[in-house]
Design a protein around this nucleic acid. Structure first.
Length: 478
DNA sequence: GCGATCAGCT
DNA sequence: CACAGCTGATCGC
């Protein structure tokens, strides 16, 4: 594979930046448009069922999660969750719950058609126009690194002019979106965990994947590159770049700033000219506790419930990757294995963390600690789930860990959190965040003292950009 | 028929 | 709301 950049191609991707870190030549309108397009969500799926099935054969761990699909010549496909729990049959999911869900969807869809006979045509027309529109969709400026042939987390724009190295900060959908097994636009640089996930989950051609170790300096296209652990999800990295002309950039990807970063040799020893910053919670109202405090609360609460009701099933919700420490700490302190389905188990095992791997169990009845997709943590779902476990448990205690789960009222006193509960099902939303809180963000910026900051989140509206910029100016004033 | 992408939703 | 997706429908090959 030849990734050489042709000599006549421009090396610089972006225009010069103004004092606020925005390109001088791009008008706010244009930029807002392209950014809102980006954020309006065009999503691909991380897994394709048929692919999963074929992968599954080679992974060889849990065939009970596969089901024959007669419509596909008896090919094995991954069961859906209700099927896995034995609630739904393989052909048509006809439980009351699943029927209700499908019917709701159908009704909404029908409602649209009935309400507006021309609605469908309009949709079609819009869709018909879409290709041209889609083609015009271009990579937002903040994903391009000026003075380099690099882009960051920009895979949904096809080949990007002038880009000969595509960086991926971490394996979350909104960052790798657009990456498929057909990727052929250039080398992808990422951490080794992210690299493994690209291979096993997306079947990206290995010849395009370039794994980099943390804290090791590489020279890529004449630029010195170092990845730093981002304290986000497994494999997440900050990208530190030193151009040959002396300019230094730091792209945080998604990260949770911490005091320990303040003593990282690279962050300590280089002045950063431009900081591309994860500004997810860049608002003083976001003041959630540390991960450790939240984990302590989760463990404490689990102990309390188990004491009251020893046959309690503890459930932790999680997306594809992230939040591992929540269930890892429950597992450690209660001395119980972690059950999760084969798909997630394969992903968790790919991290190569022996402590986590050794705690994973493939038998749901043997462990009182289960990890389920966040979307499953609803009262009715958990009730049905409980019923599939044959009286092994008689209550469910579930945790949804997300940064959005916080309220001004509870503040830092986690014990004030009120769960939603019905019957023997209890669900706690806990403010376990893998993004920086407002204060952590402020402290990080005050420590780093960059010349310019480019927000990479909440940057689509002029108001929020202005708001953030004035915060930055304040932080850097003294 | 299949994978990629879309709108709508949480 | 956003997070980081999930689902069914539709499009392109």
């Amino acid at each position: 594979m030849d990734f050489e950049i042709r000599a006549d191609e421009p090396l610089s991707l972006s225009e010069e930046l103004d004092e606020n870190g925005f390109p001088i030549t791009s008008s706010d309108d244009d930029e807002a448009e392209s950014t809102s397009e980006l954020r309006s969500g065009n999503h691909d799926r991380p897994y394709k069922l048929s692919e999963f099935a074929s992968d599954f054969y080679t992974s060889g761990s849990d065939y009970t999660s596969l089901v024959r699909n007669e419509k596909k010549n008896g090919l094995l496909v991954q069961k859906n969750l209700l099927q896995m729990w034995g609630i739904a049959k393989s052909e048509v999911a006809e439980t009351s719950e699943s029927r209700v869900c499908t019917e709701n969807r159908k009704r909404k869809w029908r409602g649209k058609e009935q309400g507006d006979v021309f609605g469908l045509n309009q949709i079609k027309n819009e869709k018909g126009k879409k290709p041209a529109h889609v083609q015009s969709r271009s990579c937002p400026f903040y994903k391009k690194i000026p003075g380099t042939p690099f882009t960051v987390d920009a895979f949904r724009y096809g080949a990007i002019e002038g880009c000969s190295a595509y960086f991926l900060t971490h394996f979350h959908y909104d960052h790798y979106g657009g990456l498929t097994k057909k990727w052929c636009h250039g080398p992808i640089y990422c951490s080794s965990i992210t690299a493994r996930l690209l291979k096993i989950c997306l079947s990206v051609n290995q010849s395009y994947i370039c794994a980099l170790e943390y804290d090791k300096e590489y020279e890529i296209e004449g630029i010195k590159v170092t990845l730093i652990e981002a304290n986000h999800c497994p494999g997440a990295a900050l990208i530190h770049l030193q151009l040959s002309d002396g300019r230094t950039y730091l792209h945080t990807g998604d990260f949770r700033a911490s005091k320990s970063m303040h003593s990282h040799p690279i962050l300590l020893n280089y002045h950063v000219n431009v900081l591309y910053l994860d500004t997810t919670y860049c608002n003083p109202k976001y003041r959630f506790p540390s991960k450790e405090e939240v984990i302590a609360f989760v463990v404490r609460t689990t102990r309390k419930y188990l004491q009251k009701q020893p046959k309690t099933l503890v459930v932790v919700g999680a997306y594809s990757i992230g939040k591992e420490r929540v269930y890892l700490e429950i597992s450690r302190s209660l001395q119980v294995p972690i059950y999760t389905n084969a798909s997630r188990r394969r992903i968790l095992e790919s991290f190569g963390w022996s402590d986590l791997s050794s705690r994973l169990s493939n038998f749901s009845h043997s462990s009182p600690l289960h990890v389920l997709p966040l979307s499953c943590l609803r009262i009715e779902n958990l009730n049905k789930y409980l019923a599939t476990l044959n009286q092994r448990f008689n209550a469910v205690l579930a945790f949804r860990p997300t940064g959005w789960t916080f309220s001004e009222a509870t503040g830092s006193n986690l014990d004030l959190i009120k769960p939603t509960s019905k019957g023997n099902i209890t669900i706690f939303g806990v403010p376990y965040s893998e993004h920086s809180s407002f204060n952590e963000l402020r402290d990080f910026v005050k420590f780093l003292r960059p010349d310019k900051i480019i927000p990479t989140v909440n940057a689509s509206s002029l108001e929020s950009r202005d708001k953030m910029q004035s915060l930055f100016n304040n932080w850097l004033k003294s």
